[in-house]
Structures are given as structure tokens and as C-alpha cells.
């Protein structure tokens, strides 16, 4: 026990020697498991739409940023507890989340969700078995429809469940499903797109209005000069632009 206390004391010491100052480094928290929004590339670094977007936003806002990954399940509690300053993890703006944290302006249009099923399958969307990642807006959506919801911990498992026949279809962000459908002959996007949520934004602590305004301003400036649209076209083909 003593050892540990000593250890953290030493850490604390090194930490306090670094110069202080509000948000000299802004920590961006992401999940790192949701391509194309955010994922870990071959080099083991965060990559994807949000990586590029986040870096650009930080440059525009004049902030030094650092990327961290966190489990999706505890991504909001850790933000609120101050372990990082921003969530940038494909998080849709919803009323429930908005009660607990603040969102910047949305940086993608309300993104359609879509169903992915085995190619040629006839899926009953209101009475069949639909898979979703636990704790997503899609899971909540299925739970309130008539369909049977099967929840998995990771997005990977939801797709695996469809392939194995465990679930008839999976409901997830279209941008996530599209590359999977394109590159695998056995699965395809089926049915109509579903619109849930109010677009994706960065999640920021409610007390951190200054940071929120900075990022919102940066997002607006990217919207105006078209760089955001270029990013969307690059990473999220098929998604609506601004």
C-alpha cells in the first residue's frame, strides 16, 4: 500500500511541475472501434473521419490536442469526471445525452441508420430479430419497435450475428455498414434508411462553455469554407453534406 501511495505522490509531483493553465492541452476522447468515424489504424493510432476533423478543428481553434481512447460504455461518465475534455466518437446528439453534457454544433447531418442483412434475405423489420450494439440510439430504437432486440457489446459482434443467422438484420449507422456491405458479397443494406438523432456533435462538459464555443466556431468555419464537406465526401460517402 505504501508503495502505491508513494508512486502516485511521485506522479503527482511530476504532474504539478508541468506548467499550469486552462486547457493548454485539450484531450479528445474517442472509442477507436467505429470505422469510418474513428478506428485504430495499422500503426496503432487513432484514425478516421473524426481524427482528421478533430485535428483540423484544433488547429483552427488554436488548441493543442491529444487523442485518448475509452470504452463506449463509460465514455460519458469519464468526460464528466474530467478524464478528458471532449468526446468525439460518432456520438449522435440526443435529448437524453444533452441533459448530462453539452454538444457543439453538429459536424455531420443527421446520419441515416440502415439495416444490414444477408444478401437476398427478406427481413421483417417490425417483428424479426434485429441486432444492435448495446447502449446506442439504434438499440433504443429497436427496443421501442415491435422487433426483438439482441444486444452485443461491440459493433463487430452485431455483424457477426447477422452472418451466423443469429439475428435477421443489424441496425447501425449507415456509414459504418456501407463499407461492410460493399466489400462482402454475402451481406447487403436492406430496407429504407432510418433517421434517428440530431446529427453527430462533440460532447463537452456543461461547465466548459468556453471550449464548446471555440469548437462550435471552428466547426462553423469549416462548414463555410467547404472543408467539412470535403471530409464528409472523403470518409462518409453517401452521407448528406452541409
Amino acid at each position: 500500500m505504501k508503495k502505491i501511495i508513494l508512486g502516485s505522490a511521485a506522479l503527482a509531483l511530476t504532474a504539478s511541475m508541468a506548467f499550469a493553465g486552462s486547457h493548454s492541452v485539450v484531450r479528445l476522447g474517442t472509442e477507436g472501434a467505429y470505422p469510418p468515424y474513428n478506428f485504430i489504424n495499422d500503426a496503432g493510432e487513432v484514425d478516421g473521419f473524426e481524427r482528421e476533423l478533430g485535428d483540423e478543428l484544433c488547429t483552427r481553434a488554436g488548441l493543442t490536442c491529444e487523442w485518448v481512447t475509452n470504452e463506449w460504455d463509460s465514455i460519458i461518465p469519464n468526460l464528466v469526471a474530467g478524464n478528458y475534455d471532449v468526446i468525439i466518437a460518432g456520438m449522435s446528439i440526443t435529448d437524453e445525452r444533452d441533459e448530462v453534457i453539452d454538444f457543439t454544433a453538429n459536424y455531420s447531418q443527421p446520419d441515416p441508420s440502415a439495416y444490414l442483412a444477408l444478401d437476398g434475405a427478406d427481413v421483417d423489420f417490425d417483428g424479426g430479430v434485429i441486432a444492435a450494439q448495446a447502449g446506442t440510439i439504434q438499440a433504443a430504437q429497436i427496443a421501442s419497435s415491435g422487433a426483438t432486440l439482441v444486444e452485443f457489446a461491440t459493433p463487430d459482434e452485431t455483424v457477426a450475428a447477422v452472418r451466423s443467422g443469429e439475428a435477421d438484420a443489424v441496425l447501425a449507422d449507415k456509414a459504418y455498414l456501407l463499407p461492410i456491405a460493399e466489400e462482402n458479397a454475402d451481406v447487403a443494406i436492406v430496407g429504407e434508411d432510418v433517421l434517428i438523432g440530431g446529427g453527430i456533435g462533440m460532447g463537452i462538459r456543461e461547465s466548459d462553455t468556453e471550449l464548446r464555443d471555440k469548437f462550435t466556431a471552428a466547426i462553423e468555419s469549416m462548414k463555410e469554407d467547404g472543408t467539412l464537406n470535403a471530409l464528409i465526401v472523403k470518409w462518409l460517402p453517401g452521407s448528406a453534406t452541409f
Binding site: A20, G21, H23
Partner: peptide, 26 residues
Amino acid sequence: QGNDFVVCDIAKLPMNNAPQWVHESY
């Protein structure tokens, strides 16, 4: 502050601007 847990900057553990490895070892 509402849901937020806010402490003064120098009380942050580890400091916000500490390098990543400090955060990881913490």
C-alpha cells in the same frame, strides 16, 4: 456543477497538459 465534477486546474490528476504516458501510468 450539475453533473460535472470540476476541480481547480492544479488539482487535476494527472494534469491536463501532462504527456500521454503520465495519463497512462496513472
